[in-house]
């Protein structure tokens, strides 16, 4: 199977939109649900996802977003209650779907009883901000520069690059394999990309989907 997922994102605000753009860059198939007409127009201009205009708690709207084919739904509006409601409704409509809800407080971990995962973007943002404030030379493994992404990527069985030596794989310009398997050594030309192992990759957004294709099929 390919590594590409069919993702629904409820809420096209800053968090929802950035997430959608990131996923689309990586070659995933994204649909956004957004009720504010003004934001819908803004998203449409950016050309990253199909947009359904409407209220994400409305089952009819969730269905229009293609719930029956989606692998994941992420409710990323600013309201925890609304996000949980969307995830629960989605699970009801499509029991197999993976659900991700954005929460507002650090204590929200207990919500994982209802959803598969929770995200607390403010905390992640705070970590990056703290790193910047302290100004250490080393940064967390996250969005460290303006556009460059540093990612930990697991090589999938059967992917084009799986089992190949690094020197035998031609990554597009703008991509660099940084670490050896599971991050013990810096990658060398004789490093083998083993299926199931994880590698630190530095990649420019434009070629991220190609890199994901090579490493995850």
């Amino acid at each position: 199977m390919t590594g590409s997922r069919d993702v629904i994102i409820a809420g096209g605000g800053r968090v929802g939109f950035e997430t959608a753009a990131l996923l689309a860059d990586h070659g995933h198939d994204v649909t956004i649900i957004e009720r504010d007409e003004r934001i819908v127009d803004e998203i449409a201009d950016e050309w990253v996802a199909t947009v359904i205009e409407g209220d994400a708690t409305d089952p009819g709207i969730i269905e229009q977003a293609g719930i029956e084919r989606a692998d994941v739904i992420a409710a990323l509006t600013g309201e925890t209650g609304l996000n949980l409601g969307v995830c629960l409704a989605a699970s009801e409509l499509s029991p197999e779907i993976r659900t991700v809800a954005r929460i507002e407080r650090a204590t929200g971990q207990e919500y994982t009883r209802f959803v598969d995962a929770v995200v607390f973007p403010e905390h992640a943002g705070a970590r990056v901000a703290a790193d910047e404030i302290i100004g250490r030379d080393m940064q967390t493994l996250a969005d460290v520069t303006s556009t460059l992404d540093i990612m930990l990527v697991r090589v999938t069985e059967g992917a084009p690059a799986a089992g190949k030596q690094l020197s035998k794989v031609r990554f597009p310009a703008g991509a660099l394999v940084v670490s050896d398997d599971d991050g013990n050594r810096v990658a060398r030309s004789d490093t083998t990309l083993t299926a199931g192992r994880r590698y630190v990759i530095a990649v420019e957004p434009e070629v991220a989907d190609e890199v994901m294709n090579l490493m995850q099929g």
């Binding site: 390919t2 590409s4 084009p160 794989v169 031609r170 190609e210 294709n213 090579l214 099929g217």
Partner: peptide, 16 residues
């Protein structure tokens, strides 16, 4: 191939 409607190898880029 990417959509899983042909063999997955159709949807893969050549490693070289």
């Amino acid at each position: 191939g990417r959509e899983g409607q042909l063999l997955p190898s159709f949807g893969q880029l050549h490693h070289r």
